[in-house]
Design a protein around this nucleic acid. Structure first.
Lengths: 195, 195, 195, 195
DNA sequence: TATTAAACGAGACGGTACGTCGGGTCTTCGG
DNA sequence: CCGAAGACCCGACGTACCGTCTCGTTTAATA
């Protein structure tokens, strides 16, 4: 009777089936209507097998997102030596990802959970958000060193200025998330970066 | 045969009690655990009286937020003639509102619903979000006319740049929402406004 | 996918608790006020456990009656060789049973359901009524063979004549159900049996 | 503020509509599903108008039965001088009435209520049952006087013996309620009457 | 004939129970 | 002996009616 389940005995088949079923279902039904029972049934798995390995629905969805092909781009940013070009790719990539139907379902689900579940929110930040921001920070630091941007740049604030506009429009359903918008937002932010 | 019930016969007492009970409960329990039955019980009202007038839990919470004392500041912005000072007040006010425990509960709830309920999302934008943005746009337009900011300013983008950073940090739980941060974000955005 | 749930997995503990709770409650409240929720609560059981195994309130009460100690006497009739004495015991037993507070509650409930639910009515007849009548018919047939009663006796009609008066007074609330009445009704019926 | 509503102002139109709607509905739905709201809606009447004049659903149904064309035969029995012929008409009439679809619905409803509502049960006995039995008793008393039946006849018991078999078969759903059965039951009872 | 108080149609209200759904736990049984 | 299957307790869901309580609107007995 394993108090903490023994990872060694875990069935890889079940784990994969659960995450795959979750990825399928999240595109078919709203996150609120996505239930553990439905996941278990779709995966051909007992409910207990889910509860044994994940603490909540949000945690399953989080893992399913990480597993998914539609997962977000890795934390690396290109360094072509041209900070503007590199950031343009970042912002355009964000717009594309946020409007990709497969990925958007996952991300809306994560947004919902982040508002409610502090633990999952922390996991989301540590596993996804902060690494991404660190990558951008690194690239910006290189740009500072190269003299492409102002020397006294506040890296955190710069990231917020770059990503905030796109993120806000997406999370509030304001629309207008095109690559043109990404370019315009970048230009506006560059005004500060280069001030 | 009231397909839509007759508003004339509606009990103001019940309406107020429901919204007040909702405002109380949303601070006591998480939004996911907030149920119609609990609202009805707290308000001393039959469940049907809620279902008769609101289509969903989110709609009740929305109305409760509008009714609440902790409601967001009205859409008006001061016009002191100094655009930087006026925007500073806006951003600081945003930080204060977003960290006020009473208001934050409502807003997190709205964020959750916006991700799921398109209709409620549209109502939220039309009733709250767009009027606020329009007020800021008006103030910015006045600043353009006064020559305080660049003549070719993209008003929508300017608003995104001003509010996006604060909004993103709040909605992703990144913390750091102080008045100092508000000032720093304003300064950064002003680099674009005045470019 | 248990369209019909698997009886093998059924919890005997729950089944017994439900029927016991029903037997208790039916004496405390009128049948109309007896609700599934109250039974579930008294039995310490989820409502679904009742709905899973019984199609209606009436079916639960029927099973509870069968299970109850206060259940009706078994279908066997004594055969002392004296048909009048044996029938006297039958009729007196009926009067006693119909005026026993514990049993009467159950029987009134069954009467109500029989008027409304054809399926339950059929079950009641097959499980209780017809076996009892068959036992009486057997005893009467023996009396015919022994020459105690007329040779051309109509067994069904004889049973109706014996039991009808008592049953009618009880079901219409006419009162007067004493052992003396049982004896008088028997004597009257015997006039036909022996004609 | 009329504690007891003034019968003088009562709307005959409403009263008739309510009883007519009840008579219609009782044939369309089971008695358990017959609701005050449905009666009010069908009658084009406010619910309060029903509650003002009747204490319960059963009381409405009772009045509707009395009002109905399908009402039971009046309490008078023919007196042709031949007690057997007169009782044959009584029993055949009972069988016909109990198998008339219109009347049967009402009577099943009354049976249900009698089991539950003592007050309504008393009203049913006083208004319908006992007058009918008194009429039969009168006819039997005349037969005693005429020397057609035994001098020491117990009138109550005789009525029970005559009507009990038919009533029991009907109320228990045993079937077999034909005019032939009525004749057979009469012959059996006559064995006692004439003993 | 005009007044006026009631009964009326309508239906919102506070409740109670319904029958269903799904959550998270516990038990059984087959591979 | 693991894990799928699923029964269990629980609690909320959204619905249906209950019986009560306003609302205006007829309507019929007075004044």
């Amino acid at each position: 009777m394993p108090e903490t389940p023994t990872a060694a005995r875990r069935s890889e088949r079940s784990r994969a089936a659960i995450l795959a079923a979750t990825a399928e279902l999240i595109r078919e039904v709203s996150y609120a209507k996505l239930g553990i029972e439905a996941i278990a049934a779709r995966a051909g798995v007992g409910k207990q097998t889910i509860y044994r390995w994940w603490p909540s629905k949000g945690a399953v969805v989080f893992d399913a997102m990480l597993e998914s092909d539609s997962g977000p781009e890795g934390p690396a940013l290109p360094d072509t030596g041209d900070i503007a070009a590199d950031l343009r790719q970042l912002l355009r990539g964000s717009v594309v990802a946020l409007t990709d139907p497969g990925f958007e379902s996952f991300l809306r689900a994560m947004y919902i959970e982040i508002q409610q579940d502090a633990e999952l929110g922390a996991a989301y930040r540590e596993r996804l958000l902060l690494p991404q921001r660190a990558a951008v920070a690194d690239r910006l630091a290189a740009a500072v060193a190269a003299g492409e941007v102002r020397a006294d740049l506040d890296l955190e604030l710069a990231i917020d200025l770059l990503l905030g506009p796109v993120q806000m429009r997406w999370s509030l359903g304001l629309g207008g998330l095109t690559e043109d918008y990404a370019d315009a937002a970048l230009d506006a932010a560059l005004a500060y970066l280069r001030a």
